[in-house]
Design a protein around this nucleic acid. Structure first.
Length: 419
DNA sequence: AAGTCGGGGTA
DNA sequence: TACCCAGACTT
């Protein structure tokens, strides 16, 4: 048998056995219960860089709250964001709603089924377009994600770096050849299911694998050294000082939160106000936490610059928040609202500092208005005084969700103890 | 091609 | 710890 014939046979074997395995092993997932293109689409956006088990509860809540394309298109953006709270990559939520409006206006509320149209939807790239077209419409389009690249690089012993762009193109060509006639939907899902359940990154379960016999990596004993992938550079650390401002008088029992800018990191999410901590200058330049008094002093100045009348009192707790490119270490301080608060009414912060106000009015990319990191661009956002119950109306990144929940829990314990 | 965008599970 | 993940968008 020629090499080309062997290759053809290996491909046919792969597709046939994988498909058969899938019919017996596929998981019962909410978006698999109907072939509803809207459900498939939502699930695929949520599944970007996110595990199935994490997505399931979010998916169920989401389609309950937004059952149709039109209901999503017509919803307030903050509702969509709140539904996405804790899932991460929040631009996915905003892009999804943008795309829902595209579908409503350009395609009569029906998810389009041709490549051009699907690809034009905001937030839909090569993988997601292929996934929607194949899974929802059974079109013979490849849907190549990291999972599929791992499976193919092992089965065919491909040593291309899957972090490189051209590799995905090559994998797509291969994946397209493998789709059995009329079976695009099942086959593409089978490929991903195998990657998720059997051909896992660290320790692949080769024995129960339906295609083990002809897996080139396995036959070469190289299944754990594939795929080849250049590793990402480590995230840079950022030390920050956060203010947990406890209200007094009219704001008693409430905490101050602010909204982030409309673009960039955690866009339009709500948070405790926080600012960069200056590097601790201990002479060695090694960084590390700031001495307590220096931190309090820095925070006092940041609060004043932001137009928040509050006095830092004591360190409360530390919290970490990891992004793919940054790691925040937040040192949270309890602060007391000061009397006489003409500058922090409900609504927007009014700047007292002339320099900051004029700099913002001038427009442009004002990242840091002052060299010391106070008066940052974030200081121009809306602020609110909230209770625990109000948390339901604002979308928070997980770190602040946990911080606020812990704080209000503690307050409840204290108030019950003092009764 | 590289950087920007969260968060959690796994070994 | 370090690595991984059902990626897309911007520059």
């Amino acid at each position: 048998m020629t090499q080309q014939q062997e290759q053809l046979e290996a491909k046919a074997y792969f597709s046939r056995h994988l498909l058969e395995w899938y019919h017996g092993q596929k998981r019962d997932l909410p978006w698999r219960r109907h072939r509803n293109p809207y459900y498939i689409w939502i699930s695929e956006i949520m599944l970007q860089q996110t595990r199935v088990d994490t997505v399931i509860p979010y998916f169920n809540r989401f389609i309950e709250r937004f059952p149709t394309v039109e209901s999503l298109a017509d919803a307030p953006e903050e509702d969509v964001l709140k539904c996405w709270e804790g899932l991460g990559y929040y631009s996915r939520a905003r892009n999804l709603q943008h795309a829902a409006r595209q579908v409503k206006e350009q395609y009569g509320g029906q998810v389009p089924n041709d490549r051009e149209a699907v690809f034009s939807l905001k937030g839909v790239g090569p993988y997601t377009a292929g996934a929607i077209l194949s899974i929802a419409f059974n079109r013979p389009e490849p849907a190549v994600d990291g999972n599929v690249m791992r499976v193919l690089s092992r089965y065919f012993l491909l040593e291309d770096d899957i972090a490189k762009g051209p590799t995905r193109i090559k994998m797509e060509r291969l994946a397209a050849e493998l789709i059995p006639e009329g079976e695009a939907s099942h086959f593409n899902q089978a490929l991903m299911e195998l990657g998720a359940l059997v051909c896992t990154p660290k320790s692949p379960r080769c024995l129960p694998c339906p295609v083990m016999e002809h897996c080139s990596a396995r036959l070469a004993g190289r299944e754990t050294s594939l795929p080849v992938k250049t590793k990402a550079k480590p995230p840079r650390p950022e030390e920050r000082l956060a203010a947990l401002v406890e209200g007094r008088g009219a704001h008693a029992g409430r905490v101050l939160i602010r909204q982030r800018p409309a673009s960039g990191l955690l866009a339009r999410m709500w948070e405790l106000p926080h600012w960069p901590a200056p590097p601790a200058d201990d002479g060695a330049g090694s960084g590390g936490p700031l001495p307590a008094d220096a931190a309090l002093d820095r925070l006092r100045r940041s609060l004043r610059t932001a137009g928040i009348s509050a006095r830092p009192e004591a360190h409360y707790m530390a919290a970490e928040h990891t992004f793919s490119h940054i790691v925040w270490t937040l040192q949270v301080y309890r602060c007391r609202e000061e009397e006489a608060l003409p500058r922090v009414a409900e609504g927007r912060v009014v700047y007292g500092a002339g320099a900051a106000a004029s700099a913002i009015d001038a427009g442009g990319p004002q990242i840091e208005l002052f060299a010391d990191g106070s008066g940052s661009r974030e200081d121009s956002g809306a602020v609110r005084w909230i209770t625990r119950e109000d948390m339901a109306n604002y979308a928070f990144p997980n770190v602040f969700l946990k911080l606020l929940t812990a704080y209000f829990d503690e307050q409840d314990v204290r108030s019950r103890a003092s009764e």
